[in-house]
Amino acid sequence: MKNFKKICFVLGTLTATSTTAIAANYNANHFFAERHSMVRGPYVEFARRVAEKTNGDVTFQVFTGGSLLPPAASLQGLRDGVAQISYHAGTYTPAELPVANLIGNMAFYNTDPMVMAFASTEFGLTNPAALEEWAKNGVVFGGGYSTSQYFMMCNTTVETLADVKGKRLRMPGGAWTRFAEYIGAVPVSIPSSEMYTGLDTGSLDCAVAAADALDSFSLKDVVTSMNTLAIGNYYAGFEWGYNKAFWRGLSEDNKRVLFDEMAYELAQHRLAFDADVNKAVDAAKSNGMQVYSPDEALVSSLNRFVAEDEKVLIENAKKRGVENPEEILAQFKSIVDRWDALLNSVDRKDVDALAALAKTEIYDRLDLSTYGMK
């Protein structure tokens, strides 16, 4: 296995540093399974269309399920050329991506996943502090994403604030961990791949994640109840990040293809993710899962936490060396509010209309001759 990883590293590095007009196969990395909505369209179909529209100049071999890079190594592996394009969850690298984690922890500011997918994309492509952070890590940011809303999926009844106290909740870290502690629960930080085992063995009482996990991670087999308190949504990091050497070797025409396809999949993915959630919840309910609305005390606790936690975000960002985090958050909120308004002007079930909005309002405004070249 060690030798295999070394071979992957060498091949990836050679590919990244040999980016000429010669057609080549490049590595695309995602740690979710191929059937997940974040992989099916944004990686598998994306790779197919990119190869077709670049006449084979840019052909990605898609590695899924962590088969090329495990979650915590995806940022370094992308930088080092093991992959030329990769998904990365920012929570795994808070020291390397303090700005990305600062805005990622604003998950409770607006819990509309469509708004946050488009807003996080614009921020990552245009904010000076974010761009400096990507460059420092050898990454060219391609586009963002957002999961659907996070709910508590439990192997016991969790309906009220009193029910939550003392429960062991799987949380993705950051603000979610602080919220668990705020309401008297016990946060457990494990990757999504371990949620099933935790619920099955009883080391977890609830998994806090998007409800498509009932199907994509088979949680429906071990979950008996779900609470619909909207505990934010996850968008830290990037859905598409590119190795810097690879990006610089692309022609402007091929970069435009990538931009256009990311704009399309940004929209397509959001609709597919929500469709997967609805399908998974319906199937789990038919299998006996109970769905509870949060009581007033639980809702009030979340609202108080959101109001109080922003100062913690700012303090943590300063400790990690972020300059002017207050200004960065203000800029991010402005972008979020802009997309909240923009998305009211379009049919949010029309993939092509949403993709066109992403193109005109984000990607078409970037200069292909300079973007990602510093």
Rank of each mutant, 00 (worst) to 15 (best):
P187S: 06
V188A: 12
I190E: 15
P191L: 03
P191M: 03
S192V: 07
S192R: 02
S193Q: 09
M195K: 05
L199P: 00
D200A: 15
T201W: 12
T201A: 11
S203C: 13
D205V: 04
C206S: 11
C206I: 13
A207D: 14
V208F: 07
A209M: 13
A213I: 13
D215I: 14
D215E: 14
S216F: 13
F217A: 15
S218T: 13
K220R: 10
D221I: 14
S225P: 06
S225F: 00
M226S: 04
M226L: 14
N227D: 05
N227Q: 04
N227I: 02
T228L: 10
T228R: 10
L229T: 04
L229P: 01
L229C: 05
N233L: 13
Y235T: 09
E239A: 07
E239C: 05
K244T: 09
A245V: 12
W247S: 02
W247V: 01
R248G: 13
R248A: 09
G249P: 05
E252Y: 09
E252W: 08
E252V: 15
N254P: 02
N254R: 04
K255W: 01
R256A: 08
V257H: 00
L258K: 00
F259N: 10
F259S: 08
D260N: 15
E261V: 03
E261F: 03
M262L: 09
M262G: 00
A263F: 06
E265F: 07
L266E: 00
D276C: 13
V277Q: 06
K279M: 06
A280F: 07
D282P: 03
K285I: 15
N287I: 03
G288R: 06
G288I: 07
G288L: 06
Q290E: 15
V291D: 04
V291P: 00
V291A: 07
V291G: 04
Y292P: 02
P294F: 00
P294H: 01
P294D: 02
L298R: 00
V299R: 14
V299C: 06
V299K: 14
